[in-house]
Computed example of a mutant assay.
Amino acid sequence: MYDRILVPVDGSDTSNHGLREALRLAKRLGAQLRLLHVVDPQLVYIDFGGMVNVSDYVESIRKAGREVLAEAVKIAEAEGVPTDAELREKNGGTVADLVLAEAKKWEAGMIVMGTHGRRGIRHLVLGSDAMGVVREAAIPVVLIRDPAAR
C-alpha cells in the first residue's frame, strides 16, 4: 500500500527535512520514492532596468530545478532507496494541483512533504501548497515541519 512515496522537493531546508523523513519511511516500508520539483515559467523577473530575456530566465529556473532534483536523488541513492525524479512545469493551476496529479499518475500510496508550519496572518497571506495537498489528497499525506520554523 505504501510502496510508492511521492516527495515534492524545492531544495529548501524545510523540503530537505521532508526528504529525510521520506527516506526513513521508505527504508522501513521497502518503498521507492519519486521526487518532484515544480517550476513556474510564468514568473517574470522585472527590475527598474526592464525585463530580462524570458526564455533565458525560464531555462535558468529549469536548470535550477534539475540541480535540486539531482542533489535530492544523490541523497536518496546514498541511503540505498530506489528513487526517480520528475520536473514538472506549472502552467496555470497551483503547485498542489501538480503534486496531486503526479501522485495519481504515478499511483503513489503516500505523499511526504516539508511544510513551513505557518499560522495565522502569515498563513492567510502566503498560503500553503502543503495545505492544498492535504485538503484534496485521496491518499495519506505526511507533513514534516522544519524544526527551525517553530
Rank of each mutant, 00 (worst) to 15 (best):
K104T: 05
I139A: 04
E77V: 11
D40I: 07
L25E: 13
L33C: 08
A78L: 05
A31F: 08
L69F: 01
V133N: 00
A149V: 04
V81F: 01
K27R: 15
A64D: 04
L25I: 11
S128V: 05
A70I: 12
A137T: 05
A70E: 11
V54K: 15
L100S: 06
D47G: 12
P147I: 12
R145A: 05
V99I: 14
I61G: 10
R66W: 14
T14I: 06
D97E: 10
R88L: 02
E102A: 15
F48M: 09
P41A: 07
R20T: 14
N16P: 01
K105V: 10
N16F: 00
G109R: 12
M131R: 02
V95F: 00
A76M: 09
D40S: 06
R122M: 10
V54Q: 15
V125K: 03
V39E: 05
K27Q: 14
L6I: 00
N91K: 11
S12M: 11
A101V: 00
E71R: 14
D40E: 12
V99N: 04
H37P: 12
V7M: 03
P41W: 13
T14V: 14
I5W: 07
L143N: 08
H116F: 02
V39Q: 04
T115N: 12
Q32Y: 00
V54C: 06
I5S: 07
D84E: 08
I144C: 09
V99C: 03
D10T: 10
R122F: 13
M51H: 13
G93L: 05
V134F: 00
A96E: 01
T94D: 09
I111L: 05
I46M: 10
V125F: 09
Y45F: 15
R28T: 13
D97P: 03
L143P: 13
A85T: 01
E71Y: 07
I5L: 04
A26F: 02
L98T: 06
M113E: 09
R34F: 06
V134E: 04
A85D: 02
E67M: 07
G65Y: 02
L87A: 07
Y2S: 13
E59G: 00
V142E: 03
G117S: 08
R4P: 02
R62N: 12
K90F: 04
V38Q: 02
V142Q: 06
S128Q: 01
G127S: 02
